[in-house]
Design a protein around this nucleic acid. Structure first.
Length: 116
DNA sequence: ATGCTGACTATGT
DNA sequence: TACATAGCCAGCA
């Protein structure tokens, strides 16, 4: 198996992130079959075209913060706004509480916070 | 093949 | 809690 390239699997994983949830780079990498390739996830997203149709904004770093790219400057602002529209709440530090919004794949259907 | 880079993560101070 | 350093792995020159 794994005939497809890692990028193809990364795309599949990112596309699987449910709305209103976020996943860390390491998490996506692990699900794609490369537990230590968190950095590669960033590279993959960087190469990702605008019309890829992938929820790239749902991928954040392990601290629950939005990573910033040298060339994609401004994407961090857009990302934060998109997430906020999906119901993701940011704290005063501009960070996401991963304890509540981190995507739990395969497991339970992730109960929704009573933020409503 | 060898070496550098990087939208990262974990650990130490 | 924030900043600094080391380790990782896959892509690219």
């Amino acid at each position: 198996m794994s005939d497809e390239s890692l990028d193809a699997r990364l795309a599949d994983v990112v596309a699987s992130i449910p709305r209103g949830r976020v996943a860390t780079y390491g998490q996506v990498a692990e699900l794609a079959g490369a537990p230590r390739a968190a950095r590669h996830v960033g590279r993959f997203l960087f190469h990702l075209p605008d019309g890829a149709g992938l929820p790239w904004h749902r991928v954040v770093n392990a601290r629950g913060e939005i990573a910033r790219a040298p060339s994609r400057r401004g994407s961090d602002v857009l990302q934060r706004e998109l997430l906020r529209e999906e119901g993701v709440r940011f704290d005063l530090n501009g960070r996401i509480d991963l304890a509540d919004f981190r995507w739990d794949p395969g497991g339970a259907p992730a109960r929704r916070r009573r933020s409503r």
